[in-house]
Computed example of a mutant assay.
Amino acid sequence: MACVVSQLVAFLPVVTLLVLVPGGNNLLVLRTAVEIGTDAARAATAGTSAGIAAWSVAVALGVGGLVAGLPGGLDTLRILGSVAMIAMGLWAMLPRHSTPAEAPPSSGFLTGLAVCVTNPRTPLTAVSLLPQFSLPEAGVLSTLALGVEWAAVAGAWNLLCLSLARGRLDGARGRTLARIGGLIVCGVGVLGLLV
């Protein structure tokens, strides 16, 4: 048990830095808050965290080793992730002239889950990072614990961003904030193509 705790403590600063880098999940939560509302954005946050947990389970069960073992597997994920981030960033910068729509929070959860599961940045991170911190003697459970920590930190960050942006997500300010977020995500995607 002490080993697992020390593993989680060692992983915390790394995963914190990871979630601070803007990505598709963050952009989706922000965009959902602007277009649909805060309740749906909170549900989208839960969906993105569930997507992180799903990829962590996949890595714990051996999918990560399979992808890493394929020739060019990690590079393919990196390129797909970068292109997806550029596309999501451009999508966020498109002008919207609608007012927030009424939608059930469950739609936010499902959208968050779908975006996270299909966003190649998530599996790339899971495949390349989780095994580095996983305890060999704990195997699957160790990787699952790391995934839960990652999902919790990512969810907390998205909720904190929503809280800080409260009152600024309506009208033109919200659209401007979403466009700035889109520009940042595009930049991160371009950097991913260059490395």
Rank of each mutant, 00 (worst) to 15 (best):
Met1Pro: 05
Ala2Cys: 03
Val9Ala: 15
Val9Leu: 15
Val9Trp: 09
Val9Phe: 06
Phe11Ser: 09
Pro13Thr: 10
Val19Lys: 02
Val19Ser: 08
Leu20Ala: 15
Val21Ser: 13
Pro22Asp: 11
Gly23Ser: 15
Asn25Gly: 15
Val29Ile: 14
Leu30Thr: 05
Arg31Ser: 15
Val34Phe: 13
Val34Tyr: 10
Gly37Arg: 05
Asp39Tyr: 11
Ala40Leu: 11
Ala40Glu: 10
Ala43Asp: 09
Ala46Thr: 06
Thr48Pro: 02
Thr48Ser: 14
Gly51Trp: 07
Ala54Pro: 05
Ala54Ile: 12
Ala54Cys: 14
Trp55Gln: 02
Val57Tyr: 04
Val57Phe: 12
Gly62Ala: 14
Val63Thr: 11
Val63Phe: 12
Gly64Ala: 12
Leu70Gly: 07
Pro71Cys: 11
Gly72Glu: 07
Gly73Ile: 04
Leu74Ile: 15
Thr76Ile: 12
Ile79Leu: 15
Leu80His: 03
Leu80Trp: 06
Gly81Ser: 05
Ser82Pro: 08
Val83Gln: 07
Ile86Val: 15
Met88Gln: 10
Met88Ser: 11
Pro104His: 13
Pro105Asp: 12
Ser106Ile: 13
Ser107Thr: 10
Phe109Leu: 15
Thr111Met: 06
Thr111Ala: 08
Ala114Cys: 04
Cys116His: 10
Pro120Ile: 07
Thr122His: 05
Thr122Tyr: 03
Val127Thr: 02
Leu130Gln: 03
Leu130Thr: 03
Leu130Tyr: 06
Phe133Met: 03
Phe133Trp: 02
Phe133Tyr: 12
Pro136His: 03
Ala138Tyr: 07
Leu146Cys: 00
Gly147Leu: 08
Gly147Ala: 08
Trp150Asn: 02
Ala152Thr: 08
Gly155Ser: 06
Ala156Trp: 06
Trp157Thr: 05
Asn158His: 06
Leu159Gly: 02
Leu160Lys: 00
Leu162Gly: 00
Leu162Asn: 00
Leu164Lys: 00
Asp170Trp: 01
Arg173Ser: 14
Gly174Ala: 09
Gly174Val: 08
Leu177Pro: 00
Ile180Ser: 09
Ile180Tyr: 05
Gly181Glu: 10
Leu183Arg: 01
Val185Lys: 04
Gly187Phe: 06
Gly189Thr: 09
Leu191Gly: 09
